[in-house]
Design a protein around this nucleic acid. Structure first.
Lengths: 191, 191
DNA sequence: CCGAATATGTCAATATGACTGACATAAATG
DNA sequence: CATTTATGTCAGTCATATTGACATATTCGG
């Protein structure tokens, strides 16, 4: 019985707990707004869960975890990134990153080079093996994401991006905006 | 302690690693498609990170973790849910859930009742303390999410929902579709 | 040039949340 | 009655994160 059953067979207390949409317009709107937000919580949980799952088979084969994947992703996307910038993106402690990075370097996926301007820095980049691995992981997630994009359509994708960007905090927004491709379609807001 | 810096001060290897959008139309489109997907990876990471962060302060005060929050959320949303249905939603093992649930029950946030139709089942629901706690946690995430919805606009929210729904797997989609408000009819269970 | 600040690395100890696999009990079901 | 199901539990392990202290090399301001 491998398939997890998600459908609920009975939910006796449901109607006792949820505020019923009564005739009063204000109350009903409030209810809908709250339900909208709770739905967003569900969406974020499930979408993120299945998005991250997509690469797990490959990671398991190699004895790596999601933390390694995240590091590979952001180093691959920002070749020559400093350790402290990577820490700022991942929002984990130096020690947590150190363990992940040391594995990736030992296994030849990530290389360090001293910064030319500031020789204290260790600029991180993917080796060709690291690029290859990151690509394998990427392809798995791409399958799921591009299928979703195809299914939802271009207009929905634009809305998706806007909402996701608005959920994250300012520093992450700044990162996202700087990482966009140069030939991007202009956003709704003024620069 | 300075603000974590996310902006990248130098990225020497960037242009060496990213495939350049050459004149060839096909290659350029391929590049854009790939960049679109990598952007989606970024969006999911940052949005999920900051969405989950929102409730952490309260959880820390109480010595609870995100696993407890997830359980509270899905029990609150599905009062009377069975243990196995909750396991199917969270996709964790019985043992992982057991530890979380036993804490929540010891601390009076969650109650069990034997199923009426099937007395093997332990139907889970929030106590009033559990409802109160879930609401506190909810309000924090609501601040962030409703601000994002407001900023992005109704059309974007619709697109967001479509894409998120398309990212998740079939069982999660079925759950989402059954949980939608208003057009929710009594669950298809034969009494 | 010197002292302070910065970038990075490292140590030890700890916490959380997840896992596997085995086993136990009660109840439903054919 | 035998089997299956729903749930609980035990023991051990792993992955990922944390804090806080300390070390080294380098940069930078006065």
């Amino acid at each position: 019985m491998p398939e997890p059953k998600v459908e609920l067979r009975e939910s006796p207390g449901r109607n006792l707990i949820e505020p019923k949409p009564v005739g009063l317009a204000g109350t009903n709107l409030l209810f809908l707004r709250e339900e909208e937000i709770r739905m967003a919580q569900d969406l974020l949980f499930f979408a993120y869960r299945d998005f991250t799952n997509a690469a797990d088979v490959i990671l398991d084969e190699l004895g790596l975890g999601r933390a390694h994947h995240r590091a590979l992703h952001f180093i691959g996307r920002n070749p020559g990134i400093t350790v402290s910038d990577l820490l700022g993106i991942l929002r984990i402690t130096k020690q947590s990153l150190a363990r992940v990075l040391s594995v990736l370097m030992e296994q030849g996926y990530v290389a360090q080079a001293p910064g030319r301007a500031d020789r204290r820095q260790r600029l991180l980049s993917l080796t060709s093996a690291g690029q290859a691995l990151e690509r394998r992981l990427f392809e798995r997630q791409k399958e799921r994401l591009s299928a979703a994009y195809r299914e939802a359509g271009a207009a929905a994708v634009d809305g998706f991006r806007r909402v996701m960007r608005a959920i994250m905090d300012d520093t992450a927004r700044a990162y996202i905006d700087n990482t966009e491709p140069a030939n991007r379609v202009p956003r709704g807001r003024p620069a």
